[in-house]
Nucleic acid binder design. Structure first.
Lengths: 283, 283
DNA sequence: TCATTATATGAAAATTTTTTACATATTGCA
DNA sequence: TGCAATATGTAAAAAATTTTCATATAATGA
């Protein structure tokens, strides 16, 4: 029995007559639906009687339509992974919703990595490694990314600062200078609080790496370097979710690049930190 | 979504009772035969009545035994191997490092969504919607996911609690009861602090949804429902980064499902919150 | 531990799906 | 063009599946 009954039907259509080809065409036209259809559904859709379909299944070598149906179900389809699931609608069931959320995240990763260049990443890494201090800034959902970045980079020899509260972020920004670097994270690149922070950084000649989704946003325009965290919106009534995924993965990439460059020194810092934490817990 | 119902049945056996496990064992014992079997053949082989098999198929999320049978048939189709980019090495240049970091995140998403079923997600959604209060718990990196979840679900009518500090999380856990639900997030599922929280929740009969990478971990075993956040490690010297991506996307999925189910009420809450924030800023 | 309630299970009835018989239509060949 | 062979669809029969109902089992509370 052939591995892929769908491909076989497609290739051998000439061996069958007009009614049989009617059925085959219907199956090939919508293989997803046909795989799960009862014989009556196939009959209604194709205009071929259930009796003829039953006989066709036997003619092509199956014991029954049921066996044929199983073979359709297990056939490797020619469907490529769907690239765009579209927006989530009220008609979507649980399966569709999950697929769409995950596809949105996956597509954001694809789009983001496709826009990154080694040159951008090398420049960003150089800014971070060369800086006396590195600050991470973000408001709202982006503040979680900034704070997560801070915790990651604490393991490197870099001298890093971050804080979840806007007011303290602003004070930290004001105290950085031209020997320092900053990573400013904002999906829209238009948030007023974030732009004020970026303005203070710029006034102090801090090297600014912006992580945003919009290349033409005020934040992007004021930054020394822009790393785009691209996302498509598939979810109703919500701000970007997959953009957060892209932001986090950009941070992960920078962290890995910095770690790779400072490899020996990173391990020293981590070892020291672990010893310190264990001594603290012993008391 | 559920590309492999057979692996899911194997992983989720503990969720089912003795008769259901009788059936599952029969299917797992000879998947080739089970794949093509009629319900009567499965009944004769397993000693479980056809009525119970029909009901089991519905219980695990299918419309009918026929749909379940189709899923079994397609589950024996081998998944294409996930591309594995390997660990980041000192020889990798910037481009290779970026590709590997992004591939790790993308593969985590694929692996995670492949293990999710509509049934699991519906159960989780039901727990959340039916609960008087919903608590989000996580330590370390997972605390950021928990806190991010909290901010998202604040937009729903659900009564949610979360806090980044372990001590306060523990106090919150102790005060939840059997009318409440909890989402406990831990990559390893073995972190001592997290397990203590999970234990308190279990003592109080709180419905626990665990988000973890390890199905056999203590956290998974104590939970009412497990949603696996799968990841492969490609980065040196770092705890899971792509697992965080998977955790966040699971949360996004639950948020979307809850939002979809409570659609009108979610919009009302968001509208009220936005009005409140704007009034606050006007002063 | 026992009684009660809730849930699960299997036998049997009901329903749905599929196959086969039969009447008719269509095709192929001389 | 006529006849025989084959194909097709309708309807009846058979098989497969689901639901109902009675009973068994599990869970809970006193």
């Amino acid at each position: 029995m052939a591995q892929n009954i769908i491909e076989q039907l497609r290739a051998q259509k000439k061996q069958y007559n007009s009614t049989e080809n009617k059925l085959i065409d219907y199956i090939l036209q919508d293989t997803v639906r046909a795989r799960e259809a009862t014989i009556r559904e196939l009959s209604n859709g194709s205009g071929v009687s259930t009796a003829t379909i039953s006989r066709f299944a036997k003619k092509i070598g199956f014991d029954s339509f049921r066996d044929f149906s199983m073979s359709l179900a297990s056939a490797t389809t020619t469907l490529s992974p769907v690239d765009f699931f579209g927006e989530i609608t009220d008609n979507d069931d649980t399966d569709a919703i999950a697929q769409k959320v995950f596809a949105g995240a996956s597509n954001a990763l694809k789009a983001t990595v496709n826009h990154l260049t080694a040159s951008m990443l090398d420049t960003a890494t150089h800014y971070l490694v060369a800086a006396n201090r590195v600050g991470f800034f973000g408001i709202g959902g982006s503040s979680l990314v900034a704070f997560n970045a801070y915790h990651k980079f604490l393991r490197t020899p870099l001298n890093v600062i971050a804080h979840p509260d806007y007011d303290i972020q602003l004070m930290q920004a004001v105290k950085l200078n031209n020997h320092d670097a900053a990573v400013v994270i904002s999906h829209s690149g238009r948030n007023k609080d974030t732009l004020l922070i970026a303005q203070k950084l710029k006034e102090n000649h801090v090297k600014v790496i912006a992580i945003t989704a919009f290349a033409e946003s005020p934040l992007a325009k004021s930054a020394d370097l822009v790393l785009l965290s691209l996302a498509e919106e598939i979810n109703f009534r919500s701000e970007s979710m997959s953009s957060l995924i892209a932001q986090i993965t950009i941070i992960d990439t920078l962290f890995t690049l910095v770690g790779s460059q400072l490899s020996t020194r990173t391990q020293d810092v981590v070892d020291t930190m672990r010893t310190t934490i264990e001594e603290t817990r012993a008391h």
